Computed example of a mutant assay.
Amino acid sequence: MTASAPDTDGPSARPHTAQHYSVAPPPLSPEGYVAPGMPGAPVTGYDPVDPAPRAAPRRRTALAVTLALLAMLLGGLAYGCAPLRAADSLGWLAIAPAGLVALPLGRLGGRNRLLPPLGALLAAGALLLGQLIEHLRRVQTDGPTPHDLLHDTLAAWRTDLRPLDAAFYAIALIGGFLLTRRTANQN
């Protein structure tokens, strides 16, 4: 059985059968086109519509350092003015001034390479300031001059230093560095 050849008496009543080609048929879509959502290489000459580029966040390093200095003073004041009966367990809160200092440095300063070491130093400075304020409250002298008051406070601080204080300073240094870097990376 054969199909009717063109230019014969008329169309055949048989249904069309599958056609076999020796070469592939021409594609119905342009070459290299990949339907959206389908895996494949990018199409040459195809420019997708780019969304509006995100504006880079503004970095305010001077404001960040100023607020970090204020946070250091505030953290040292809060650390030094804690009740004296809690002084023995207070050292473990050395991470709190580090967090206070790191927040403005990381959020406002961004990923500046100098800010994490600065955060570490300011956190240790807050701890030192807090310890000095605590010893200043303990010093009792009769009509001290500012020089005598500072001298007595530093002498009391030096005599009261313990090996555990080195651990507290290490906590403040490491915490200030890591927290500043972590808050900067969250931006």
Rank of each mutant, 00 (worst) to 15 (best):
L67I: 02
A68E: 06
M72K: 03
S89T: 14
P57F: 04
L93I: 10
S89N: 11
A94H: 01
L63I: 13
Y79R: 06
Y46Q: 07
Y79W: 10
A56T: 08
R54L: 14
P57M: 04
T61F: 03
A64L: 08
A62F: 10
R58I: 10
G75T: 00
L93G: 12
L70P: 00
P48Y: 10
A56V: 05
A55S: 10
A62Y: 07
A71E: 00
T61N: 03
G91Q: 08
V49K: 14
P51W: 01
P48F: 13
G75H: 04
A68P: 02
A86M: 13
A62T: 15
G91E: 09
L90D: 03
R59P: 00
G76F: 02
L74S: 05
L74D: 00
L67Q: 07
A55V: 10
A55H: 09
A96N: 08
G75I: 01
P48R: 15
P48E: 13
L63D: 11
L63N: 07
L74K: 00
Y46K: 05
L77S: 12
A94M: 08
L69H: 07
V49Y: 13
P51C: 05
R60F: 11
G75W: 03
L67P: 02
A78R: 03
A82E: 10
T66F: 12
A56N: 06
T61M: 06
V65K: 03
G80L: 06
P48C: 10
L77N: 04
V65A: 12
L77C: 01
D88L: 14
A86S: 12
L77E: 09
T66P: 07
P53T: 01
A56L: 12
A64R: 06
P48A: 15
D47E: 11
A71R: 08
L63F: 04
L63V: 13
A68Q: 08
S89D: 11
L77T: 12
D88C: 04
